[in-house]
């Protein structure tokens, strides 16, 4: 086994078993741990004690930026920088500037949402100790894993292993860092 392990990993067969285990690991007070699932398991956030995602705040900021960009861009171009009267219409009005600003609101929100999701998730990260685990490929197929990091304050090789076995984890192994 590795000299400096990253943590312990346990395997579960069903989402139900994983959820049950997650509740107990959460109640045991661990902070730096994670579940690996092939699809989003409904209710696992709550079982893990994960707080509501912060992505919406970033999206909102993106949306506001987009709308202001649209309005100010059109004002600057058609009213300020090079005013031309077309069809006797006003040089600037928020009404005709609205469709473009609306589209830019959506465009900027989309970029902010996806950028925000990557940023909060710390992706792209092509190297990760979890990805080195032999069986992990089934974590994107049909198996479920629970990982407790060594960096957690409560981590103790023997006790943590005992906890993982107690909550129903199969094949509890050390992860190389």
């Amino acid at each position: 086994m590795a000299e400096k392990p990253y943590g312990l990993i346990a395997t579960f067969d069903t989402p139900g078993a994983l959820m049950h285990a997650a509740e107990q690991v959460r109640d045991a007070g661990y902070m730096k741990w994670d579940c690996i699932t092939p699809f989003p398991v409904h209710g696992l956030d709550k079982a893990m004690g994960v707080r509501r995602s912060k992505v919406p705040r970033i999206s909102l900021a993106g949306g506001i930026t987009g709308f202001c960009t649209g309005m100010s861009m059109i004002w600057f171009m058609d009213r300020f920088d090079y005013p031309i009267t077309v069809g006797g219409k006003p040089l600037f009005s928020p009404l005709f500037a609205f469709p473009v600003s609306y589209e830019l609101t959506i465009l900027f929100t989309a970029f902010a949402t996806i950028g925000g999701m990557f940023f909060l998730n710390g992706l792209p990260m092509h190297y990760h100790p979890v990805l080195n685990y032999e069986d992990i490929r089934r974590g994107t197929d049909d198996l479920f894993f629970l990982v407790i990091e060594k960096a957690d304050a409560r981590y103790d090789a023997a006790n943590t292993r005992a906890l993982l076995e107690k909550v129903g984890g199969k094949l509890v192994n050390e992860l190389e860092s």
Partner: peptide, 9 residues
């Protein structure tokens, strides 16, 4: 890597 914390975001 299918992390639950990632799935949440």
């Amino acid at each position: 890597r299918g992390s639950s914390r990632h799935w949440s975001n």
